[in-house]
């Protein structure tokens, strides 16, 4: 091998070494700019979504009169009243009880048990213990895809305004039920959030939900999450261990009563 060949080989070896050296995920400055939301956080308030406008005490799903106050247009209000009646009668099949269906947005912000906010440069994940939800919020500057396939959680992009994560979510599936009272929204809905740690123990998420098909104006609600002691665990969640809406041998979804017997023939 001549000199130039040897040089080239040495350069290649150096390059290989450089490539093999794993790069750090992000410099200290990128992490220093982010807030510390580590640990486990407990959703506050009831599993009725609209804490500010609900008109009942926290209680069992199906409690008579439990409803929320989204600014529905007449058509969707009528539909919601039917759903409430269904909850009261025990005939509204709530997708969460089918197991294996994600809570979706914005319901995934409205579940009991623990939450995690995984903040990294470029992406934030939000997890829920209840039903094992995972939501991805891209903060790497990307926009929404041009052709969005509707999904349960939709497509979320975020940007940091100081210590506030501002998130916009679009592309959620039509008609998903977003709380235990039977609130539904269309696939035209958009959810804008401002998420911030407001004190040592609290993360607050201010939501503004718009939906030109179902709502006459923005629906604003706030959810809060309380920090749990260091060392708190989030454990596996197995809905299938208590599936209230299994699929029978004919492919039909059935609803089980408290004794595990089908409610309908």
């Amino acid at each position: 091998m001549d000199m130039s060949g040897r040089l080239a080989a040495a350069a290649l070896a150096l390059l290989a070494l450089a490539l093999a050296q794993p790069a750090a995920a992000a410099p200290a400055a990128a992490w220093a700019a982010l807030p510390d939301w580590s640990g486990v956080w407990q959703m506050q308030g009831s599993t009725v979504f609209d804490e500010s406008t609900r008109n009942d005490a926290p209680g069992r799903a199906g409690s008579a009169g439990v409803r929320e106050r989204p600014p529905y247009n007449a058509r969707w209000e009528e539909r919601y009243l039917k759903n409430i009646q269904g909850v009261t009668d025990g005939t509204l099949p709530d997708p969460l009880t089918y197991c294996g269906i994600p809570a979706g947005m914005p319901r995934m912000l409205n579940q009991p048990d623990g939450y995690e906010f995984i903040v990294t440069p470029g992406e934030v994940w939000q997890t829920t213990e209840n039903a094992g939800g995972v939501r991805r919020i891209f903060t790497d500057g990307r926009g929404h895809p041009a052709n969005l396939t509707p999904t349960y959680n939709g497509h979320s992009i975020g940007r940091w305004e100081g210590d506030t994560l501002v998130v916009e979510t679009v592309g959620m599936v039509a008609d998903s039920i977003i709380d235990r009272t039977g609130v539904q929204l269309s696939d035209k809905r958009k959810v804008v959030e401002r998420i911030r740690r407001i004190d040592a123990d609290t993360i607050e998420d201010q939501l503004t939900i718009t939906d030109p098909e179902a709502l006459t104006g923005p629906w604003r609600v706030t959810k809060r999450f309380k920090k749990q002691p260091a060392g708190t665990y989030i454990f596996d969640y197995a809905c299938a261990e208590n599936n209230r809406n299994p699929v029978d041998e004919n492919g039909r979804t059935i609803t089980l009563d408290a004794e595990g017997k089908p409610l309908h023939d």
Partner: peptide, 28 residues
């Protein structure tokens, strides 16, 4: 650590949704 509570919640997973376990705990 909240081991035992979480065990129960996970075991009766779907029921937790109905009873709003989070709200009851928060109130306490």
């Amino acid at each position: 650590m909240q081991t035992r509570r979480h065990v129960r919640v996970s075991t009766f997973a779907a029921l937790g949704l109905f009873f709003g376990a989070g709200a009851a705990l928060a109130a306490a």
